[in-house]
């Protein structure tokens, strides 16, 4: 008696329906905020990758005779105390920070996502214990953690990545946890339990794809903070080490000169840090907007 039914296949307007990813992408491409941020970031990424090719001087080459000369046609941004060209140093100085900050953010995202899934999925005692530990961790300033890590691991880029990555992980974990708590109430999770799926499968195959949007937003926001943190650590001497032309490091070695009127040794590095942070934050704003439209 199988009944004849015309179930016309997919909804008629389905050809016009785009995937969520495509929708977010098209929304991003229409967002002025995002595009401006992206342009700034891409500019610095280009500098990091190909800086040597268009920097007028070798950023490490000293020229004691011309030390501390003010901005001129020859040295656009002037020279520092041992005569290195500030313009070339600013251009190439993006390299270390643009390696360390994204890697630290990636580490924070991976660790934070795993912890967020765990606490949000299991709730109860697991959540209580892990969340309290994470909160305690968040209460310690990054600088103290960095000091301890340097004592234990020595100064290196890897140390900086680990310190910033682990400091930011609890913040990402908190975002992921709240998204997971909401997802967990949905019936597809009960359906997975009714298939006797493992907790691992439910967390990483069922829930994770649905919490990607908040993770992406949080990651872009964190990247901005990570850049700032790397610059701060370098300034304090815990981060990137000489002779790198890193911005934070340059400011640190030159800021004593401001009093003497040699402002150009510090200003351009500071502006570079500010522009990169603003660029990342604008992009993060755009990403946030695209996901929450």
């Amino acid at each position: 008696m199988s009944a004849v039914q015309t179930t016309s296949p997919v909804r008629q307007d389905d050809t016009r329906r785009r995937s969520p990813a495509a929708e977010v992408l098209s929304s991003l491409m229409r967002s002025g905020t995002f595009l401006t941020g992206l342009a700034i970031v891409l500019f610095w990424v280009a500098c990091a990758l190909f800086g040597e090719h268009f920097a007028p001087y070798d950023p490490l080459a000293d020229d004691i005779i011309n030390a501390l000369s003010p901005p001129s046609a020859e040295h656009w941004f002037g020279t520092d105390q041992i005569g290195r060209d500030v313009f070339s140093r600013v251009i190439v100085g993006s390299r270390d920070i643009l390696t360390v900050a994204p890697l630290a953010t990636l580490l924070a995202t991976i660790a934070g996502t795993a912890l967020g899934l765990l606490t949000g999925y299991f709730r109860g005692i697991v959540d209580d214990v892990v969340s309290r530990i994470l909160e305690a961790f968040m209460a310690i300033p990054v600088v103290i953690v960095a000091l301890l890590a340097i004592v234990a691991l020595g100064t290196s880029k890897t140390t900086v990545i680990i310190v910033i990555g682990l400091s930011f992980a609890p913040i990402i974990a908190r975002t992921v946890r709240s998204a997971v708590l909401a997802e967990r109430e949905l019936d597809y999770v009960a359906a997975a339990q009714l298939r006797h799926e493992s907790a691992f499968h439910t967390m990483f195959v069922e829930i994770l794809p649905n919490v990607i949007p908040p993770i992406l937003v949080e990651t872009t926001v964190r990247l901005g903070y990570a850049i700032f943190a790397v610059a701060t650590l370098s300034f304090m001497g815990f981060g990137i080490q000489p002779p790198s032309p890193d911005w934070g490091l340059s400011i640190s070695s030159n800021y004593g000169m401001i009093g003497g009127g040699f402002w150009w040794t510090v200003l351009f590095d500071a502006l570079a840090i500010a522009s990169l942070v603003i660029g990342v934050n604008l992009a993060a704003d755009g990403v946030h907007g695209a996901f929450n439209d």
């Binding site: 949905l186 597809y188 009714l194 298939r195």
Partner: peptide, 20 residues
């Protein structure tokens, strides 16, 4: 025993994983 008893939920939007 688990496969012998299954459920059809009220709201398919919640019951079907939207990523799959």
């Amino acid at each position: 025993q688990v496969k012998a008893m299954q459920i059809v939920f009220q709201n398919p939007d919640s019951a079907l994983n939207r990523s799959h």
